[in-house]
């Protein structure tokens, strides 16, 4: 019951390509983890394993005390996509996107019930987007777009929130308010995991850090793991502009 995610010696292979090898990580409930690593280091694969979209060739994965498949059925894991993979011209409103969080719990026709509507409204209130319900999603600012997808995760009732590069393209103010929201959610017991390139602000946001390079090089409290030596090992080079002494 202690760990939201418990992975042991997980290996993932696409064809003959080994993208993750013997990766182990134990992420406790109610924590805020930053996953860092180079492009192609295996961050998204790690996410896919947690979501149950990729089956490891070896190793054992437990998500919310169940197999990823069961966790998926319960809607325990929610994914907030990167900005560029969403079609922002798609004719759906903020309300409709958040309602999509409920589909796993709805009947075969996906008809919204009163309960669904309540969850959606609560989620929208939580992320302070209730005034924008009828907006088409392309008509929002970068920060608002992210909040909508966080609201979808909340409407889903997810315990674990996975965010892929949530700060990409956000201005400083939006970044701060999104961070605030995520920290608040963590305080309410949600497990927040984000993949990011933003090394500078990382120590201020995340209480834990996972370093990924084809495996999980290190995972633990930020002050113990986010060190110059380990981060430079992760990125194969010297890191400038990051203060490691905090």
């Amino acid at each position: 019951m202690q760990y939201a995610i418990d992975m042991k010696d997980v290996s993932v292979q696409y064809g003959t390509d080994v993208v993750l090898k013997d990766a182990s990580i134990q992420i406790p409930y109610g924590t805020f983890t930053g996953v860092i690593g180079m492009n192609g280091a295996g961050k998204s694969t790690l996410f896919k394993v947690i979501m149950g979209l990729v089956k490891p060739v070896r190793g054992c994965v437990v998500v919310c005390d169940d197999s990823p498949g069961i966790a998926q059925k319960h809607g325990h894991v929610a994914y907030v996509p990167q900005n560029e993979v969403v079609d922002w011209d798609f004719p759906v409103s903020v309300y409709e996107v958040v309602m999509m969080g409920r589909v796993g719990l709805q009947n075969i026709f996906k008809t919204p019930t009163k309960e669904d509507r309540e969850h959606v409204e609560n989620a929208l209130t939580k992320v302070k987007m209730l005034d924008f319900v009828d907006r088409q999603i392309g008509e929002l600012s970068g920060g608002q777009k992210k909040r909508v997808f966080v609201a979808r995760a909340l409407a889903q009732g997810a315990e674990i929130l996975l965010l892929d590069e949530p700060f990409a393209g956000l201005d400083a103010l939006s970044e701060r308010s999104l961070t605030q929201l995520l920290v608040e959610l963590k305080g309410e017991g949600k497990t927040v995991i984000l993949a990011t390139h933003e090394l500078t602000s990382l120590p201020d946001i995340c209480d834990r850090v996972a370093l990924v390079k084809r495996t999980v090089i290190a995972y633990g409290l930020t002050e113990e793991v986010f060190t110059r030596a380990l981060v430079e090992q992760t990125f194969d080079g010297i890191i400038h502009n990051v203060n490691f002494d905090k």
């Binding site: 998926q72 809607g75 994914y79 996509p81 993979v85 759906v92 996107v97």
Partner: peptide
Amino acid sequence: LIFCFDVVHAQSVGM
């Protein structure tokens, strides 16, 4: 519609 809009989400909730 969900299938067209966001396959990853649809998959992640077990559709």
